[in-house]
Amino acid sequence: MTTPMLEVEGISTIRGRVQVLWDVSLTVQRGETVAIVGPNGAGKTTLVGSITGLVPPKSGRIRINGADVTGSPPEKLASRRVALVPERRGIFAPLTVRENLLMGAYARRARRAELDADLDDVFGLFPALVRYRDAIAGSLSGGEQQMVAIGRALMAKPELLLLDEPSLGLAPKVRAEIFGALARLAERGVTILLVEQNLRLAARICGRAYLMQNGRIVGTETSDELARSARTVYLGSHG
């Protein structure tokens, strides 16, 4: 069996004085698309933060491509070919769209020509961004900013893409556009770990899901099961 892309092994994480994650474990195989679903405050963002190093866990192990990265600083993340699309997008608001994208490639130290080709690639994936190339990113709509955040992460040429609620606050049409792009990335072989509260959207691109509640993994579902729960339990409350 090949080494998993990501292994989280029994991590517990504290924020402030509150323990937020309790013995959380999960595995993402190379090429897989996996969702983490759960209600507000379940600890999804904290889990992502523990993987990136932004909120280091107090115990447990995290391995990326077999290498132990527990407690390693976020600066190291990109060079391990992992990129984050953070909650609420976290774009560099005063920078232009193009500058935002270029910053995603910081750790690669690539040459200009290579970067230009990668920029074209991102603009190909998100044609809506082309005309805002030199616009200040903070002035874009929420959906466009989300595209910038995803495009920026892609510029890191990630093997593993972490996305924290990319559908948050977006109109259905824009969501569809973004999830279409994510589906294409998955086809290209990018491994995806997606935090998503919208089960129907998650079921569209994810092979399986971990359910989180009160800081623990409380179950796993296949994408069919996810879609079914989306129809029954959550119908009406999610778009």
């Binding site: 990136t52 190093g53 932004l54 600083p73 976020p74 600066e75 190291k76 993340l77 990109a78 060079s79 990129a83 984050l84 953070p86 976290g90 774009i91 560099f92 608001a93 005063p94 920078l95 500058e99 935002n100 270029l102 910053m103 995603g104 490639a105 910081y106 750790a107 920026r152 890191a156």
Partner: peptide
């Protein structure tokens, strides 16, 4: 490029760091 990276680091330090920008 370096100057832009400094502006990115100023705009959002933690997220900049996840892209390898050395604060």
């Amino acid at each position: 490029y370096a100057g832009t990276a400094v502006r990115a680091a100023v705009a959002n330090p933690p997220i900049a760091s996840t892209f390898g920008i050395p604060l």
